[in-house]
Nucleic acid binder design. Structure first.
Lengths: 345, 345
DNA sequence: TTGAAAGCGTTACCAA
DNA sequence: TTGGTAACGCTTTCAA
């Protein structure tokens, strides 16, 4: 941290380079008409003075901040992290920069974040889910910028959507359980509406049970979101105490599923012979664990990539590309060892 | 996205409320002298017009952007995510907002990020590690803002430091292995200098071997960082092919350790009887897996909390609090099932 | 407690 | 290809 009187501005650079500030401004952009020689002189002057471009002033003047606000429920979640990576990668090469926030699965925090972010004048905003408080919705609608809802297929979208039906995805697992000869199915997680994706999965699962005429009572308790491995383990223990003859359990995420699997190992419950386990999200752990865990891949990264496509077309748009309002992701069931077809017990 | 002619400014609010823009500005701040009644009128006018405060303009004018730039190697890493959470939590209540970036363990990307972030005029910058390119170091030193290096104890710090010695932490594991009767020790991960923390751990481990007079040849190959569960599993397989009599392996992170453990289960290698496994980072998986994995907790979240303390004292400082330059974290060995003392084979 | 004027550092716009 | 001028929307500073 060097002592300094005052950071140099374009004016300072201009003086040293013997040009006008306006020319310095042009020289800082990749494109723009500046003679090569002039630009060279300017960049040298900037280097010499230790000039650092001020995006704050640039944003105010041009009304383009280069920010894309992104709000996810949790920073510590491989799925959402993958979506963010997809966005980042897709935005590479543009001048757009992500302003990332996480709500910790709390509605009030999401409201606060949206308000805070909008004051930064982002050029687009990406949010997780399609269910919002009236206040959030109003802020987003009034923002005047493209809004992209992800990880869901809202009935009444605000603007753009990149997502899938969590309920339908969960139903895939019910079908798979039934197809592999299970009939006493349970679900762990998703009780709390604050994690709307989880809540939708759970309800989709229950709806699936209903379609197959199966009983819907077997539900583990996992407390406040987010669920984690430990909670998954604890919930499985409770579940088997209450309903010992359960022969298949789906967890709201792979983390819980892994916890459940570890708990089975500890309790001597054989997986998949006695109990089948299904997860959600295609986390690394479900692939590497032994036995490997059946899961549903929702292509988190692709959600981000498609989101970035929309943003690029809208903001850096090469003329009038037609951008469709809804990009639908197709979740994929990945069958692994924890749900191998059981032999008749 | 509603059509709009132009977003309302303080001037518009001022007109409606019948005051000057300056008074509106004051009314927007929590403190500041404004008569309660006046403020009420102003806030109503703002609400009515759908006014949204412009931080961009505010930042330019006041030269306080409210940004704290934070750069971590990866967004998809529970340890770094915890540090970010620690910072976020610690900064709650201030007007400071995190500008988060991740370098993907690439030096060039880190350089790019630092340059990009500095143009946003953050009020402080937090970086991971204490090893930087000369260009990075120069940018940081010239930035004129507090710089906080984390997750390391640099020999020649730029400014503030919150960290620990990765090498010393790794040595704890060597000692533990030796104490529990192991002598043919191996290490997986940390070959690539781009992940400096991992690199330091590996070298610390090797130094530890040397201190105990043990051979240092057993090293797994894990490719480019970051390591993950799959790479850990593969590396363990290779390792045991090359050195089948290895009786303990430390992995650069718990993720790799879990992969190694899963691989052992698959190959029928008994843990800990035949092979002890140690990880690093106290990830959830090491606690929940069966058997549970011995690890080293570096208190990632506390690193963030202490970082936030420094920033608060420096920026929101109640007068002249003395802020010490180095906050040292003490890593903690957590002994679990994968390294239980072996009976003589 | 409120207001007026002068920037903050950049870019849009028009002119040369 | 370059320059001059007037914003951009807010806050600092000083005065009332």
């Amino acid at each position: 941290m060097t002592k300094r009187t005052k950071a140099p501005t374009m004016l300072d650079v201009a003086k040293v380079a013997g040009v006008s500030p306006m020319t310095v401004s042009r020289a800082m952009k990749e494109d723009s008409y500046v003679r090569d020689e002039t630009r060279k002189r300017i960049l040298e002057a900037a280097e010499e003075l230790g000039y650092v471009f001020d995006s704050t002033a640039s944003g105010l003047s041009s009304r383009k901040t280069g920010f894309v606000a992104v709000i996810i429920p949790s920073i510590n979640n491989a799925n959402f992290a993958d979506t963010v990576r997809g966005i980042t990668d897709g935005l590479r090469g543009t001048n757009l920069q992500i302003l990332l926030g996480y709500s910790d699965y709390q509605i009030e925090e999401e409201e606060r974040l949206i308000a805070q972010f909008l004051s930064r004048r982002p050029e687009a905003i990406v949010i997780t889910g399609g269910t919002h408080t009236p206040r959030c919705r109003k802020m987003l609608e009034n923002s005047g910028i493209p809004v992209i809802e992800t990880w869901d297929l809202p009935v009444d979208p605000i603007d753009y959507v990149v997502g899938f039906s969590n309920a339908d995805a969960a139903k895939m697992m019910v079908k798979h359980f039934v197809d592999s000869g299970r009939s006493r199915l349970a679900f762990i997680g998703g009780e709390d509406e604050n994690d709307r994706r989880g809540y939708d999965r759970r309800n989709g699962f229950l709806a699936g049970l209903s379609e197959y005429g199966l009983e819907q009572t077997r539900q583990g308790d996992s407390g406040r979101p987010p669920i984690n491995m430990r909670k998954g383990a604890d919930a499985l223990k409770d579940l088997l105490e209450k309903w010992p003859d359960t022969d298949a359990v789906m967890c709201v995420s792979d983390l819980a599923a892994f916890g459940a699997l570890a708990q089975c190992a500890k309790m001597g419950v054989e997986v998949p012979r006695q109990l089948a386990i299904g997860g959600f999200g295609a986390y690394d752990v479900s692939d590497v664990s032994h036995p490997a865990i059946t899961t549903i891949d929702v292509h988190s990264r692709k959600i981000g990539a498609l989101t970035a496509d929309i943003i690029r077309n809208l903001l850096a748009g090469d003329s009038e590309v037609e951008v469709s309002k809804v990009a639908r992701i197709v979740p994929e069931l990945i069958i692994r060892e924890t749900t191998l077809i059981s032999e008749p017990a």
